[in-house]
């Protein structure tokens, strides 16, 4: 069973909490520690960014994180080592990579290397369902589960394509925009219904999760989990307590929990 499927089984109906961090931000050593903090804080799944010079899908916080990592001289090979080390320390937590097409294309055998490092899934932010097939085929061959994005404006035909091409989970975006966009606590239950109807992998909301009430609202809209990115990256850049923050958001993912 894949680590994502096992995670959903373990959660037994509770929401999954995904924590996103940019690999190598602000340097390799700190980055490794932050990843551990997220796991210690109770993150069910870890999503890691491999920094790209031109991240068009990302808002200012994640852009700045990628810039810090690149300025520190972080290479793709370093990122794969960070993943391998995280995997060695935590054998069960699903690890997903989020990056851009040019990073994947530039390295022959990227998918294989990512799988060997212990990554479970890959989301390529600038590869929509329309262009995904050559990439997802390669991922399947390497044993990496493809993740695609479904947005509120994604038509049903594209959702059907997402259902047929992706595996681990469906990254759902409620509001138009880029990472860090404030969703104002509104999460589109209609999108979740359509994702489920299309038979796509479990829907998880990203974009605009920064408070416990957002987590609860996203889960109440029918999502199987949430991913929190910009808020964690921003906190880490201000030397805040990532483990404690993750814990506060994870706390409201139980089915019977209520946001304070």
């Amino acid at each position: 069973m894949s680590r994502y499927a096992a995670m959903f089984d373990r959660l037994d109906g509770d929401g999954a909490f995904g924590a996103f961090l940019m690999l190598g931000d602000p340097d390799l050593e700190t980055s490794a520690r932050l990843l551990d903090d997220a796991v210690v804080g109770g993150a069910d799944m870890i999503e890691v960014g491999i920094p790209f010079s031109d991240p068009v899908a990302d808002g200012p916080v994640i852009q700045a994180a990628a810039q810090r990592a690149l300025a520190a001289g972080v290479r793709v090979a370093d990122c794969l080592e960070l993943i391998a080390a995280l995997r060695a320390r935590h054998s069960d937590v699903p690890i997903g990579i989020l990056t851009y097409a040019n990073i994947v294309r530039a390295r022959a055998g990227f998918m294989r290397d990512a799988a060997e490092a212990g990554a479970d899934s890959l989301l390529i932010a600038d590869v929509p369902a329309l262009e995904a097939e050559p990439f997802t085929r390669e991922m399947e061959q390497a044993g990496i589960e493809p993740v695609l994005i479904a947005a509120a404006n994604t038509p049903d035909a594209a959702l059907a394509r997402i259902a047929s091409l992706s595996k681990a989970y469906t990254y759902c975006v409620s509001r138009a925009g880029i990472t860090g966009t404030h969703a104002a606590g509104e999460f589109d239950a209609g999108l979740i219904d359509r994702v489920k109807q299309a038979g796509a992998p479990p829907p998880i909301f990203g974009f605009g999760i920064s408070k416990p009430e957002h987590v609860r609202a996203a889960l109440d809209a029918g999502a199987r989990g949430v991913i929190c990115g910009s808020a964690i990256v921003d906190l880490a850049s201000r030397h805040g307590d990532v483990a404690r923050f993750v814990q506060s958001l994870k706390a409201v993912t139980r089915n019977d929990s209520v946001a304070e």
Partner: peptide, 9 residues
């Protein structure tokens, strides 16, 4: 057409 899904429509 390599853009985020949200721009495809």
């Amino acid at each position: 057409c390599y853009v985020p899904e949200i721009l495809v429509p």
